[in-house]
Design a binder for these strands. Structure first.
Lengths: 344, 344
DNA sequence: TATTAGCACTCGAACACATAGAGTGCTAAC
DNA sequence: GTTAGCACTCTATGTGTTCGAGTGCTAATA
């Protein structure tokens, strides 16, 4: 168990290191504490904290830096979220000052402001497109053998894909097919589309549309593959380069590589989980991220759907500030999106 | 005027430096030349080439590296494009092996393969969206006071924007409006849409649609602002970090910053100009790019439209290889896109 | 018993200095 | 015109020294 004084020293050490990026020594610490103890006393406590695994030295005669266990303890027990300064709140709220009509726009803007505010990299995940509800389907012929399939969802999101149509097809057949699809598929979620297509529309198409087989086949192909990466929004991808903690070019490369690759996202952040999460250093799944901390918070997009806000920074991240910012943004974003879609 | 031997020495020097990234000395050069001259002779020539401004030294007793003037001369007079190795051709052609239906997909894939092949950053500009021709317009109501406007173009490109509609509007009015818009605007290029909207549809709308004013106004707003950055495709953004020529983190940041910002694109590459262009170092407009070379080539997307392929690398770029690659790709891409849209 | 002053010790950063090696320019010989 | 020879220059590398910030330990102190 940690004594009061040890708690205090640990907290001040972590705070100081987060702020200065320099190992913290007993002298500095002695001056910084409001109840003064001599450097020698502090040294004893530091040695004890190190023995317990909360602090580390970079070399034998250096000051202390927090270990991962130290950060973890700090985050779990010593984090006293202070109210955000006014200017931060103003900047955050500026996301919504210009009335945007599209979810994507709002999220994109949030990612941008967030990275400006924090100087870290932000990743925002929009609500899962696959759960959006089909509002309308159209098929627009482009040439003799191609057409574009368009699906509008309740959120105003538009999916579109070009597909090939059997040449010499009767145009009125396309129209018929479109009508049948709309009758049967409006109101269905995108992730159920596949199933419903086969179950409900195939037999009806068979009756009304000539050469339904080829047409149905390519249309089905087109509709099935969703653009997986289209609701991931980044802010400040290059902010890593601003951090003094990252100097090894190879590591920076690995890190940026991992972040940009959409398929890695589920490894980087807990997609779909509720509330606030903090992953410190090697708590991350990917080794490329072992020097990073990731803070995520979920937000609510209405209709029981959620998105995720994430901040990626060095382990020496300003946890206190980021947590406050994410808390505020999560609430604001939920409110705004619910307002936008109150009627859909 | 340069002598035969000076030309030869300049060429070998540039080639060698491009390959090794190390200043080239008289000894090396002497060994490398097929007609052998002693290092001393070479030294005299090198001194002369330096005097004329084609070569530089990094310090008094170092070997020579090409100056910008040297690269320029090399590119203008000494570039003997050699045929690409088979494996490069195979990899390039792999862009088209999987039959893609959308321009965007093909271009996206080209950007990716191109950066993998070259280890540099590629930027591909698609054909100017504003010159695409409207194929179909729709308005899909989402809620009582929002709707999404959708414009399909002849290329299969779909523009969509959510806009607000006057609450309590008669749904049949939206239908009427959609019909009128389609009658009047199909076949018009996107960049003329603005003008035509006002000139041709406003008066007709007035006659047939109640409360046309508000509806028309917000629709017009939605249609007017095109997503400017949506036909820029990047490949290998992080390849800069692979280049030994870039080590200064600050410069890397500036460079990446500039490249990612869509508004800088016209400054970085000669958008819309025909044929092959090479910009070396300070020939670039932006100071952030003063250590880079940019090679661009245009390609033809049918219907008298063009796109641009660009490779951004260090001044010490493998010009010979890149030029060959871009030449080949430009041709292939033009062919493929023309094939895709032969019927539209 | 908890705290602190004192002190020897350790390590990194900064600096001076020496050396090796690659390359140069110049001169004189071929 | 070409080249061998040579003195010179600069970088990179390694070594030794000093300085300062920090530590751990011991003994004195409250």
């Amino acid at each position: 168990m940690l004594t009061e004084r040890q708690l205090l020293i640990l907290k001040v050490t972590v705070d100081d290191y987060i702020q200065s990026a320099q190992p913290v020594g007993s002298n500095q610490l002695s001056k910084k504490l409001e109840t003064p103890f001599s450097p020698a006393t502090i040294r004893n406590e530091l040695a004890e904290l190190e023995r317990m695994g909360f602090l580390e030295k970079t070399h034998t005669s250096s000051g202390r830096i927090p270990s991962e266990k130290g950060y973890r303890y700090y985050v779990d027990h010593l984090l006293t979220p202070r109210p955000l300064p006014k200017e931060d709140i103003v900047q955050l709220r500026s996301i919504f000052e210009e009335k945007l009509t599209e979810t994507e726009e709002v999220i994109k803007r949030s990612a941008m402001i967030l990275s400006e505010l924090t100087n870290y990299t932000s990743i925002l995940l929009g609500p899962d497109v696959r759960r959006h509800i089909v509002k309308k389907l159209s098929i627009v012929p482009l040439s003799q053998d191609t057409a574009v399939a368009i699906i509008v969802t309740n959120t105003g999101h538009v999916e579109n894909r070009v597909f090939s149509i059997p040449s010499g097809l009767n145009p009125s057949d396309i129209e018929k097919m479109t009508n049948i699809l709309n009758e049967r598929l409006v109101g269905v979620a995108l992730n159920n589309l596949h199933l419903r297509l086969e179950q409900e529309t195939l037999s009806i198409l068979k009756q009304h549309v000539e050469r339904y087989g080829e047409l149905f086949h390519t249309f089905r192909q087109a509709v099935l593959l969703p653009h997986e990466d289209e609701n991931i929004y980044y802010g400040g991808k290059l902010n890593i380069l601003k951090q003094p903690d990252f100097h090894d070019l190879q590591k920076i490369r690995n890190l940026m590589d991992v972040m940009e690759e959409a398929k890695h996202i589920p490894m980087i952040l807990p997609v779909g989980s509720q509330g606030l999460h903090i992953r410190i250093g090697s708590e991350n799944t990917l080794t490329a991220m072992e020097d990073c901390s990731v803070i995520t918070v979920s937000y609510d997009t209405g209709k029981e759907q959620t998105g995720t806000i994430a901040i990626i920074g060095p382990k020496r991240m300003d946890y206190k500030r980021i947590v406050s910012i994410l808390d505020l943004l999560s609430g604001d974003l939920s409110k705004e999106l619910n307002r936008m879609f109150k009627g859909t």
